[in-house]
């Protein structure tokens, strides 16, 4: 028997941050690290280390994807990896002046959807080297890759291409 009739919970010194007392509003903290697998998309992230932008091509109906997916949305068949051209054109664009908390420090940043000749779908990326007033639908852009990979889709980004 180890009964202790005078048992006491140890006190903590952390306290709680209080914003308001009526109603009582307190700070509640939460954070988590995920063990995120890129699974069937892994090759896309690895290929950027070789300065390659990989999309997908359907083995059955030949539909091509600028953003990879391992099965075709048109016919359901398996796709194969397909190297995209380095140059494309702006399909649409924006400049974000605000954003999610995780990205606020990066604002303002440009987002574009890139279209590649002969490829049926688009690719979303960041564009640097141009301001809002410089970006136009149809503008030629080129992929560049970071040297130190973060294994994030931001390992590739686009810059404007001078057109003569």
């Amino acid at each position: 028997m180890t009964i202790d009739y005078n048992a006491k919970m140890p006190e903590k010194q952390d306290g709680t941050q209080v914003y308001n007392t009526d109603p009582l509003i307190v700070k509640s903290h939460y954070e988590i690290d995920y063990i995120h697998s890129y699974a069937q998309d892994s090759e896309f992230f690895r290929a950027m280390g070789k300065k390659k932008l990989m999309g997908s091509k359907c083995k059955k109906c030949s539909y091509t994807y600028a953003t990879p997916r391992s099965h075709c949305m048109m016919c359901g068949a398996e796709t194969e990896w397909y190297e995209l051209p380095k140059e494309g054109r702006i399909h649409t664009f924006t400049t974000c002046y605000f954003g999610s908390e995780a990205f606020l420090k990066e604002t303002p940043f440009n987002l574009i959807m890139v279209e590649f000749e002969g490829v049926d779908s688009l690719f979303m990326s960041r564009l640097i080297g141009a301001e809002l007033e410089d970006m136009k639908v149809g503008m030629k852009v080129r992929a560049r890759f970071k040297r130190n990979l973060e294994f994030s889709p931001t390992d590739v980004y686009f810059v404007p291409v001078e057109e003569k």
């Binding site: 998309d41 953003t67 974000c96 605000f98 954003g99 999610s100 995780a102 990205f103 987002l111 979303m124 990326s125 960041r126 994030s152 889709p153 931001t154």
Partner: peptide, 8 residues
Amino acid sequence: FDYPVGGF
């Protein structure tokens, strides 16, 4: 593909 690029 989308959240890490735009996230907004």
